Computed example of a mutant assay.
Amino acid sequence: MLTRILMLGLTVGLIAAAQAVELTEEQRAAIEARIAPVGEVCLQGETCGGVPSAMGAMSAGGDAMAAIDGEATYNTACLACHASGAAGAPIVGNAESWAPRIAKGIDELYNSGINGIAGSGMMAKGGRADLSDEAVMAAVDYMVENSQ
């Protein structure tokens, strides 16, 4: 009796396994979409999504800022707040909201981006600790250039 139960269980298991393999291309694509990675992890010194992580900002010629795409950094780290005004963030392109900030000077804007602003929603490096200071500065430059 026990042998028959085990055989029946094994048979059911094999049938289920065989059916799982017989998927249409559409079904396989749907499964792949559901289990696809939602992000990536960058190690120090690597570049992910066009944005250098800390210590990875230097180009072959040694010019850190030339190797950094401020717009790419903005798009990956700053856009959520600076396109919507979340937590009081000045919206890129709104010269009126940026004017008093720009008047404080670029060094103050860099400091705010790199270190955050206490008592506000502005986190250090926009919450992206993996970003180099140079990448944040390039993003600040991009936002200022597009908000004057």
Rank of each mutant, 00 (worst) to 15 (best):
E26Q: 15
A17Y: 11
R34H: 08
P100V: 06
Y142N: 13
P100W: 00
I15W: 04
M143F: 08
Q19N: 14
L14E: 00
A124D: 01
I117A: 13
G113N: 09
I31Q: 11
A18W: 07
A66V: 03
N111G: 10
N111I: 03
S59M: 15
G116A: 10
L2V: 14
A95L: 05
D63Y: 08
A80K: 03
A72G: 00
S97E: 12
Q19M: 14
G127H: 05
A67G: 11
G116C: 06
D141K: 02
L79W: 09
D107Y: 00
I68C: 15
V144G: 04
G13Y: 11
V21W: 09
A86S: 06
D63V: 12
T24L: 08
G119T: 10
V41T: 15
R101N: 15
A54D: 12
A36K: 15
V38Y: 10
W98E: 11
G9L: 15
S132L: 12
G45M: 12
E145F: 00
A72H: 00
D130H: 08
A138Y: 11
A33L: 04
A72E: 03
S84H: 04
A29I: 11
Y110E: 03
I68W: 05
T76Y: 04
E32K: 12
R101V: 13
L2I: 14
D141H: 01
A77I: 02
R28P: 02
L2C: 06
A18H: 06
R4A: 15
G127M: 03
A16D: 01
N115I: 01
E96H: 05
C78F: 08
